[in-house]
Every structure is written in C-alpha cells, then in structure tokens.
Design a protein around this nucleic acid. Structure first.
Lengths: 346, 346
DNA sequence: CTTATAATTTAGATCGTTCTAAATTTTGGT
DNA sequence: ACCAAAATTTAGAACGATCTAAATTATAAG
C-alpha cells in the first residue's frame, strides 16, 4: 500500500503524489502546505502535515529548483582553507548566508585556478544563485569578466582582481600596513624587513605597498634584500628571519604579511636564541585569536572578519536581487593593535 | 534566434533541446554525447560539441539528478572547522571524494547538534548519495540509527557514537595517549596532568582513558584535580596550566587532548616564566604542522589525517555501492613523536 | 540485389516539484 | 433561498535532463 513502484528492490522515495493520496487532496494543495502558503485551510493543512509525518516524507529540493529556476544555493570558493584567516572568514561568510536562508556550498581551491574553475562550473551546473570567491592566486581577469557577462551573480571577497567588473568586499590593506610600519619607524627602527606576500595577489600588493609607502614617507631607502616574498606559513617565517639575521647588516624589525608568518618569525627568533619584542620587533597582520595569547603578545593589524563575511553576503544578495545595479566596492578599515612583540622605545 | 522563450527579460537557459535543434539531431543523441557514450558516431559527436561551444551551454545537473535519482554528491558535516585538526581532516576528505568524482558539500556544525541535523536534512533534500559526519558533541545515537534505518549511506569520521550501527573510521586514541603518558612516567614524572577533552565525545573518553590506563599500569594514583575537562583552545591550555602550577602539589608534566591545547600550555608556561621542556614537560596530540616548528618542538602523537580522510571516503563509497554489507570499523594506529617539549631524563 | 546484423538515432514517458488558470466550495448579505 | 465575492482546491503543463524500447541507417555476406 505504501510506495507505488515495483514491490521488489529499493524503497521508493515518498513524493507529493503519495502525500496527496494519503491525505485525500491534490498534489497542488500539498505543495502549498509545504511552502506554508496562507491560501490553504487550517484543517487541510493539518491533514497534510499528518501525512508528512506518517509517511516520513523528504522534500525534494532538486525537483523544486528545477521547476522554480532558483536554488537558494550559494557557492563559496576559498583559496586556502587551512590558513586560519580564511577558515575564520569562511565560517563568517557561511553564518551570514545561513542567516539569510541560503544553503552554502564551500570548496577549497588550494590556490589552484583550475580547481577553482571546476568548482565554479559545478556550481553553475547546480544552478547556484550566486558565487562568493576568494580568488586563488593567478585567477585571470578574463575568467571573471566572462562570469559577469554570462549573468552569474558574483562577489569577490578579501582579494581583488583588477578590472573584473565584479562587486568586491575587502580590507584597506595599504593603510593598515603603512600604519604598522610607521609605528616601527617611530620606535627608531630603520632596517625593517617585510616578510611574505607577493605581487600576484592584491592583498600582497597592497600590504607590500603600504610598507614601501611608510618607508618613503620617512625618507628611508628600500633595501630589496629585506623584502621577501613567500608562503603564508610558519616555516617560511622562521626560516626567513634566521636567514635575514645572518646578513651583514641585518634588520632589527619585521612587518609580516600575516600573523601566521609572524608566529613563524617569533619561533625562528627563539630557535637562534633571540627574544621577540626585546631583541627584534615583530608585527603581524589579521589579529588571529592566537595573537593575543603569545608571549610576547603579537602586535598586529586587526581585520574584522565577521564584518567582511556579512558585507560580502549582503553585496551578493543585493546583486542577485538586482543584476543590473552599478558595481560596488566596500573596503573596511583595519585597526592596528599594539602589544609587546613590537617592543618599546629602543 | 537564440533562446526560445519570451524575447523580453532574462536570458533563457540553453537546454538540450536548443542544442538538438542547433545540431540537427535529437535530444537523446545530445544527451549521449554529453555523457561521452561510445554509441554515437564521431561526426555527430563533433557537431554536437560544436553546438555546445556555439551556444555556451551549461549542463543542468539538478535536472539530471532528478531523472537518475543519483546526485554524485556527498555531504560532509564537521563539528568545528576552525580547529586545525578538523580543517586538515576536512581538506583530506574533500580531496579523497574529489578523486572519486564526487561533489562535496561541507558544513560546519560548530558543535551544535541542531545545526548538524539541519544540514543532514538539507543534504537529504538534495538527495545526497551519502554523508560523512564528524558528529558534534551531544549527537544522539537515535538520530544516527534513524538515518541508518532510512537507508541513508553514512560514515562516522574521527569521533564514534556507540551503538549508531554506522561505519566508522578513526584513530586508536587510547593506545596513543597511553604511550605518551608512559613516556612521561618513564622519564620519572609522577604528577602528570591531563588537559582538555571530556567524556561527551569518544575521542575525549578514549584519550582520557589512555591516560588513566597508563597511570594504572604503573601504580600511580589518579588525582582528579589534575584531570581537567576543557575546550580545544590555546586559551584553555594557557589558563589551566597557570592554575595547576598554583596548586600546593603542582604537576610536573601534562599530556594534552590535542596540540592546540599543548601550544596554549607552552604559552601559559612562558607567561609565568617557566620554560616548557625544561621546567615542565608537555605532550600534545595530532602533530599539526606547527608542532615541529615550536621551540621547543612539541612531542605529540601523530594522526595520519590524509589516510583517515581516504579511509572514510572508501568506507562511504563502499556503503553506497552495497547498502546491506556488514558494518565496518577501521581504526588507524597513531605514531608517538618525541621532540623537546617532553624534556629529557629528569 | 537481398537480407541479416550491427551501428546509430530517436520518440515519448518519466523523475518530483511548482505554476497558471480555472473550477469548486464557502461565506455573508439580502 | 439566492447570488456575488472571497476562499480554497485542482488539473495539467511545465522545468531539463535520462531511460526504454523501437525505428532507422549503414555494413557485410551470400
């Protein structure tokens, strides 16, 4: 009596049709009940809901999406989820969309544009309403312009790709790094290294630009030997600071592309018997939860990750709502946090 | 000429129908081409693929799933993605499924069984082929049994829920923690604290059990004041070790539920002027990338995360293939790694 | 040139929902 | 009791793919 299909084999999925039969109404009415339409009479609604319970019905969202041409699904592509900054950002983005009743699909592109492209293609095949992208290194402007041209709602988060023509939510990286660097200059440092980041990614360009700008403002010549590109890992920070300390005119301080590198620098200093904050000044970027706990506490530039997630979500939802609105760019101001790792007056 | 529908409004999606018209064949043939069927003649295939390019066709996976009753989609529910162990595990699981051509849906339940249930419900609504679950704290056995009874393919990863009747892939936590604790005992420690974990989660029960077992094996009485439940955070580790050191008979060593807590312990020791590895022995659990870099290097129990991800994926894929096979449990052996934080002979 | 066989192609039903437009029932005023 | 208006319910056609079973075309053997 239950399950229409063949009596042999797998249990058939319970459908609207089954519910309709069971409750003695039409498919259309059942559909209205499930969508909480006010059109249907209270008594009918009760009967249908009772059938739902009785048959153990599971709504088929895929079928509904096919019909409505809307999926309420958002794809989120993250360049490197094992980086704690992006882990926090991902959680923030997810929370923000969840609050707006969207289902979120997360993928980790691991800095590989091909994987990112695959994911974007898959999400389009699933008819996602929109995409939030932290573009992996090397993402081409053309890829993104094509998305825009094809009418895919899209927002770039954290990292910008110039000329993509997409909405963007990010932080004011140049200003943040400039302030951090000027702080060190104010403490008397002249040989300041800049560790991590690169010019292939906007955040790298901007933070490295902020560093250069600060030195320029105070008439300090830039020694390219102290500007080191690198991965956002602790081991890069540790190895690099050890190498720089071995130079004949070593730096006395370092600003880092992010906190993870700064933690590495502090570990590296200890490995060679130097104490961060006393023998060498260190500044990070992001203000991860861990920064405050270190001994010495890490001076760093705080990005409001949760706010960025919410901003990105709002931009994307607006874009979905109104595909032809003018492009928007929101840049959040960071906050420089002074702790002990940058040392006192020297 | 392009796009069948109304000439006004949004661009219509290109469908198999459009491709068929454009290429002068039937819908069925186009479908065969897209699915790389060998049945179709080379010349026809070329023509269709040319139409795909010409019209900018995007495959509609939702429609296909509706028809085939298979989604090639896997839902992965993670209890806390900001914990780096789970971040790594998530990445490993994703990679493993990707290798098998599955699309992976990731959600962060943040230790909230309600969010986990929501996600599971959503995945069922999307007709996911299977679920990989790192159950959040407080997940009930009944929830999981119901899933099994309803024929949902499911594998538990890392954390076990007794009596769920589901496949499980995890690590031998008791053995790992027992070995670590015995190492400290061998070095002469008698007052050994156990920090973090709790009995609400299998990994906590097992690791704490391993600690108790080791003490028992060597006739050391357990001082419950030294066994502290807690969150897997650095701040818990730091605060707790400071508190324990203030006891009148303080511990001389600590084994930690995981590396993150152990890092916190090392930071906490420094905050009160003690040097980990020299003044106090510390052992972690997980062997995160960071463990090796610390000064002193963190002694810890290594879990092979990538292997766990692959194992879980294989169990789930087998289960999907063969729903009625007997339940399997795979437990991977960890490896104890000795570095400097556990100190030498005292 | 048949004819049997193999290789291709296809019409039409189907998956489980929602939508449109119309049919039916209920309600309330006279 | 009647009728208009409001409230509720519904049949049947979508959505965009795949499947089944059969039709068509090409190839080879006699």
């Amino acid at each position: 009596m239950a399950g229409r299909g063949k009596s042999a084999g797998r249990p058939q999925r319970v459908t609207l049709h089954d519910l309709a039969d069971h409750a003695g109404v039409s498919r259309a009415t059942v559909s209205l009940v499930l969508r909480k339409s006010p059109l249907v009479a209270a008594k009918t609604r009760e009967a249908v809901l009772e059938s739902v319970r009785a048959l153990g019905y599971v709504y088929n969202r895929g079928a509904a999406n096919l019909r409505t041409q809307r999926s309420h699904t958002i794809g989120v592509s993250i360049n490197e989820i094992t980086n704690p900054y992006f882990t926090e950002l991902t959680a923030a983005i997810q929370r923000a969309f969840l609050k707006h009743g969207r289902v979120v699909f997360i993928a980790n592109s691991e800095e590989d544009p091909a994987r990112q492209d695959d994911f974007i293609a898959t999400m389009r095949e699933y008819n996602a309403d929109g995409l939030a992208i932290c573009p992996s290194r090397g993402t081409s402007r053309e890829t993104l312009r094509r998305l825009k041209k094809q009418g895919v709602a899209c927002v770039l988060v954290s990292r910008d790709i110039g000329g993509s023509g997409l909405d963007y939510a990010g932080h004011a990286n140049e200003a943040g790094m400039c302030e951090a660097t000027e702080h060190l200059i104010g403490l008397g440092h002249r040989r300041i290294a800049m560790l991590g980041g690169n010019d292939l990614v906007s955040t790298g360009r901007e933070r490295r630009g902020g560093y250069r700008k600060a030195l320029g403002l105070h008439g300090i010549a830039i020694d390219e030997a102290l500007v080191v590109e690198g991965e956002a890992t602790r081991s890069f920070g540790a190895a690099t600071v050890r190498r720089l300390l071995a130079l004949k005119d070593p730096p006395t301080a370092a600003v880092c592309f992010n906190d993870v590198i700064a933690f590495g620098v502090m570990l590296g200093l200890r490995q060679v018997g130097r104490e961060p904050g006393r023998d060498f000044a260190v500044i990070g970027y992001d203000d991860l939860a861990e920064a405050e706990l270190w001994v010495p506490g890490l001076s760093t530039v705080r990005n409001d990750t949760r706010m960025l997630g919410e901003t990105a979500a709002q931009l994307l939802l607006d874009r979905i709502e109104n595909p032809d609105a003018p492009v928007r760019r929101v840049v959040l101001q960071p906050k420089f946090v002074i702790r002990e790792s940058s040392g006192g007056q020297r």
